[in-house]
Design a protein around this nucleic acid. Structure first.
Lengths: 374, 374
DNA sequence: CTGTTAGCGCTTTCAG
DNA sequence: CTGAAAGCGCTAACAG
């Protein structure tokens, strides 16, 4: 019993701390030893039970579990990390102007982590150019076990180089360039954008403006390609005047609207690369007295909260953002648990969906409109 | 030198790992020993330098710092936590339907944490009634050092009881009930709402509807009080028909609008407890062909992104959400560093600001309007 | 199937 | 001002 003496003292300490001091602020720490003492097993056996390792008699396992429950035992993550030379932190890096996007990503990741010992750490990146060279330091000082990259970081070669160098597994959300060694979760941006363009074409539009997103975001170009593809297939040449630069922010939609409204003849529809900018166009249209969709159809991309809050509600392409983050987190967890063999893990593509609302309709024809007014 | 043998072996391991194995995934771990070896100090001295403790010669301090830098050393948080019996995790608990709110809170907290060794863990709470009784388990299993509570959790007595019991310091954002032992960061909700109501009164409105928020949110009632106060001071009795229930969500604004539009005579203005619901009213007004603000003034509260995205842009009361979270985090950090003496830490009240936009104007008078139309 | 032993990288204690 | 020694609570390696 000499080997147990230390255990016992700890065990008693845990049980008597309440009365030991009136100024006790931290709760008494229940350790694996306490559980071992109570269940009559060794700490190693307790550890095995807690980690679902094999080679424990069911009844023993049961006893340990009961003791842990009775003691209200929770493993100390710090000790676990230190001893296991492993961290339980997953870093989520983002540089995104849209709160909706961020919250959806975060929610998806957190959903997947529920019940897992892993924790999510958020890393907002102000300016990803300045961010170069800092990744390794951040990973090491925060002790990250894995990393999730969202656009535009998910397609930045320098950041991915640093990540490769650091050796921690990372998954990319909405990356476009395939990259060996790092899985990626995405939607088929090009195809979705082509679908949306075809929808507009089907409505009868021929002069369709395209509002680009921030070109550093990989999805931005893919969506533009989809637009071009659909137009070309329909035998409509790309008119450079109808392609407007934007940066995914609401304000850039507002600005773009000014340019679009100045075009002569005005396009009958605008396809915006995301909902924030589409909302900007809609607001500007209100201000200029241009009726949406009667005089101008506007469609967006993402199906963010915004799209159904402005009036008219915006027809858009739903991107399953939470599901993408959920899947990305799932992949990271697999990488972490089953070792670092990315060969088997394919890139994943999730489904998009056209959400038809009220901001797009058949094109406005000047003479028809005059007849109506008369 | 016998005492150094262990150090040296570790040090060499760190320097040679690159070539040791082609499958090395984790970066070689640089420890405090390596820094000690390189700088010729003991690990304790290195520890002192790293923790800004006194009793180190400046030149020694300098040498240690240089070695740490050259080695690209980062302290291992797990070891630090374990040895120091302290965690560096701050939990942020929220149950809020508005992504903007969540992101703002998170940004404020993260801003304050920049450069600090503490990390932020987000805890979305689905249903805070079901959440009761789980707080202590979460704190212990996640090893939280401190907690930040946002509404409605920041005013829930049961949760605060659990927190008191757990012994970890916690700060409340936008709590209303004062609570000994826990500081609180808030704005003067009542006063701000009174100001907003007076603004509407000043515009000439007399029939002003009030759209309440979720009653479990403490701020909801405070804002309602402000509304009542202003009305009473102006000699206007509270008309219960003009007080509509809501839950802070966009959809509830939509619903409330239906009730408000059915009122006869219709109010000339609506004061919504937050912007999300105000946006709902504005959308519904569009659908019913009610012009805002000509036929109906709508004002919100928060100054969230939404308020300037819908058309017309919503007049609202700015609540410095990020700043509140920043301040709350600052207080937690003080509590953690300077010990657990809440006596000195007063509750903090931040400033609000009336943001006048386009959704409110003078009241619509039926006969005047008819003259205009004729 | 189970237990013992030896650390993980750091802070704490206490002795210089 | 500095350093040696002793752990923090847990897992890993190995011996039964």
């Amino acid at each position: 019993m000499t080997s147990r003496s230390k255990n016992d003292s700890v065990y008693q300490a845990a049980k008597t701390t309440d009365s030991a001091s009136g100024t006790c602020k931290r709760m008494p720490m229940v350790t694996i030893r306490d559980v071992a003492a109570m269940s009559g097993a060794s700490i190693k056996t307790v550890s095995r039970v807690l980690n679902n390792e094999p080679n424990v008699r069911p009844e023993m396992r049961e006893r340990v579990l009961q003791a842990a429950h009775k003691l209200n035992y929770h493993p100390n993550m710090a000790a676990r990390s230190l001893a296991g030379r492993q961290s339980y932190m997953i870093g989520l890096f983002y540089e995104n102007p849209s709160p909706n996007y961020v919250v959806n990503i975060q929610t998806g990741a957190l959903d997947r982590l529920r019940g897992e010992p892993y924790r999510l750490l958020m890393f907002p990146v102000e300016n990803f150019k300045e961010f170069h060279g800092k990744m390794i330091a951040i990973i090491r000082s925060s002790g990250l076990a894995g990393v999730i990259l969202t656009p535009p970081l998910s397609n930045d070669p320098e950041i991915m180089d640093e990540l490769d160098q650091s050796g921690v597994p990372y998954v990319r959300v909405a990356g476009t360039e395939p990259r060996p060694g790092s899985p990626c979760v995405a939607i088929k941006d090009m195809i979705a954008a082509r679908e949306m363009t075809r929808y507009l074409l089907g409505l009868g539009h021929r002069r369709i403006a395209f509002l680009r997103g921030n070109p550093v975001h990989p999805a931005s170009n893919a969506r533009f390609e989809g637009y071009c593809y659909a137009l070309k297939s329909a035998g409509i040449p790309i008119d450079p005047d109808l392609v407007i630069a934007g940066d995914f922010r609401f304000a850039s939609g507002l600005e773009a609207a000014r340019k679009i409204f100045a075009l002569n003849p005005r396009p009958t529809a605008v396809f915006s690369s995301n909902d924030d900018m589409a909302a900007g166009i809609v607001q500007a249209a209100h201000e200029h007295g241009i009726a949406v969709p009667r005089q101008l159809s506007v469609v967006g991309f993402d199906d963010s909260q915004l799209a159904s809050i402005v009036w008219p509600r915006i027809t858009t392409m739903r991107q399953p953002i939470s599901a993408m983050a959920y899947t990305a987190t799932d992949i990271i967890l697999n990488l972490l648990e089953n070792g670092w063999n990315t060969e088997e893990i394919r890139n994943v593509e999730l489904d998009h969906a056209l959400i038809i609302r009220d901001s797009a309709g058949p094109p406005f024809l000047a003479n028809m409109a005059e007849k109506e007014d008369a």
